[in-house]
Amino acid sequence: MNDESVTRCGYVAIVGRPNVGKSTLLNHILGQKLAITSRKPQTTRHNMLGIKTEGAIQAVYVDTPGLHKNGEKALNRYMNKTASAALKDVDVVVFVVDRTRWTDEDQMVLERVQYVTGPVIVAVNKTDRLDEKGDLLPHLKWLSEQLPNAEVVPISAQHGQNLDLFEKLVAERLPENEHFFPEDQITDRSSRFLAAELVREKIMRQLGAELPYQITVEIEEFKQEGRILHIHALILVERDGQKKIIIGEKGERIKSIGQNARKDMEVLFDSKVMLNLWVKVKGGWSDDERALHSLGYHDQ
Rank of each mutant, 00 (worst) to 15 (best):
N2H: 11
D3F: 08
D3N: 07
T7Y: 13
C9V: 12
G10Y: 12
V15E: 13
V20C: 07
G21N: 12
K22N: 04
L25Y: 01
L26S: 04
I29M: 11
K33A: 04
A35F: 02
A35E: 04
A35I: 00
I36S: 08
K40P: 00
T43N: 09
T43S: 09
T44K: 11
H46A: 04
L49R: 02
I51G: 03
I51P: 01
K52Q: 14
K52R: 15
G55K: 00
I57V: 14
Q58V: 11
Q58L: 09
Y61G: 02
D63V: 06
T64A: 12
G66Q: 07
N70V: 09
N70Y: 12
K73D: 12
T82P: 04
D89H: 03
V92C: 01
F95N: 11
F95V: 11
V97K: 13
R99G: 14
E105T: 08
Q107A: 15
M108C: 08
V109W: 07
E111K: 15
E111A: 10
R112I: 08
G118K: 15
I121W: 10
V124Y: 01
N125T: 03
D131Y: 02
E132W: 04
H139C: 15
E145L: 09
Q146K: 07
P148T: 15
N149T: 15
V153Y: 05
V153L: 09
V153T: 02
P154F: 01
P154D: 06
I155S: 09
I155W: 07
G160S: 07
G160W: 03
N162H: 13
E167T: 09
E172D: 05
L174H: 10
L174F: 11
H179D: 11
E183K: 13
E183I: 14
Q185R: 14
Q185V: 14
T187K: 02
S190P: 05
S190T: 05
R192D: 02
L194C: 09
E201Q: 15
K202P: 12
R205W: 06
G208H: 15
G208I: 10
L211H: 08
I215K: 10
T216C: 14
E220A: 06
E221T: 12
F222L: 06
K223Y: 10
K223T: 13
K223W: 05
Q224M: 14
G226I: 11
I228M: 07
L229F: 05
A233T: 13
R239H: 11
I246V: 02
E249D: 15
I254Y: 04
Q259G: 06
N260C: 03
K263A: 10
D264N: 03
D264I: 02
M265V: 08
E266H: 04
L268E: 00
S271K: 07
K280E: 13
K280L: 14
G284V: 11
W285V: 12
W285I: 14
D288I: 08
H298E: 13
